[in-house]
Computed example of a mutant assay.
Amino acid sequence: MTLLIIAIVTGLVVWALRLMDRALASQEFSLMLAGFLVASAAAAMVGVYFLMSDYMFYVHQSELLFQDQNFSEFLVLDDIASTESGLMSVDMATLLLDD
């Protein structure tokens, strides 16, 4: 993936330089502006790549930390809740039968 991005950015930079070279030769402002915009797109692509690589590293680290947690507390709380609800239903049944 990195090689693909490097190839695309290199292609954009070469294209921008060719546009700017033609702009200097023909004295056209529009070609110079187009070259600047293409060079800006290449720079933005590199910036987004670095931001996303840091984000992907963060997500991967969070996933590893989440997998390392011990979930036994959740199971205990679930067991307690199920036994309490079972007791409540038994109590309600005895109250209804007593009436």
Rank of each mutant, 00 (worst) to 15 (best):
G11D: 11
D78L: 14
F36M: 13
E28D: 05
L75S: 07
M56Q: 08
L97D: 14
A39L: 15
A16L: 10
L19P: 02
H60W: 05
T94M: 11
S85K: 09
A7G: 02
L12N: 05
G86D: 03
S85P: 03
D68S: 14
T83S: 14
A41N: 00
L96H: 14
V13S: 01
L17P: 00
M32L: 14
D78I: 15
V9N: 10
F50V: 10
Q27A: 02
I80F: 09
V38P: 00
W15G: 05
G35V: 01
E28A: 07
L95M: 04
F66H: 12
D21N: 09
A43Y: 06
V46M: 15
M45L: 15
A81N: 08
S72R: 15
A93Y: 08
L87M: 03
R18C: 02
L97R: 15
G35I: 02
N70L: 03
L31K: 12
L87K: 02
S26Y: 04
L31H: 03
L17K: 13
M88L: 06
S72Q: 11
A81P: 04
A16N: 04
S30K: 03
L51S: 11
S53N: 13
Y55F: 13
D91L: 14
S62P: 03
S72Y: 07
F66E: 09
D21R: 08
N70C: 00
T10L: 15
S85C: 00
G11E: 05
V48P: 00
V76M: 06
A7Y: 10
Y58L: 08
A39W: 09
L95D: 08
L24V: 02
L77S: 08
V48E: 06
S72T: 13
Q69A: 01
I80K: 09
M92N: 10
D91V: 14
S26F: 10
Q61V: 05
L19E: 06
R22V: 02
R18H: 08
Q61L: 06
V13L: 14
M52Y: 11
L65G: 04
H60Y: 10
L33V: 09
Y55M: 09
E84Q: 14
V14W: 06
W15Q: 05
M88I: 08
F36K: 01
M32Q: 07
E73N: 12
S30V: 08
L64I: 14
S40Q: 00
D91T: 04
R18T: 05
D78E: 05
D79Y: 13
L96W: 13
S62V: 11
M45N: 07
F66M: 07
A41V: 15
F74V: 03
I80G: 00
I6M: 02
I8G: 03
V38M: 05
F66K: 14
A43N: 01
F71K: 09
S82F: 13
A25Q: 07
G47N: 07
L12P: 01
M20Q: 13
S26W: 01
S26D: 05
S85D: 07
L64T: 08
A42E: 02
L31N: 05
Q67Y: 12
M88W: 04
D79V: 13
A34H: 07
V14Y: 10
A34V: 02
H60K: 12
Q61M: 10
V59D: 06
S26A: 01
A25L: 08
M20E: 02
H60E: 12
W15C: 06
L24Y: 11
Q67H: 13
V90E: 08
L87I: 01
F50R: 09
Q69T: 06
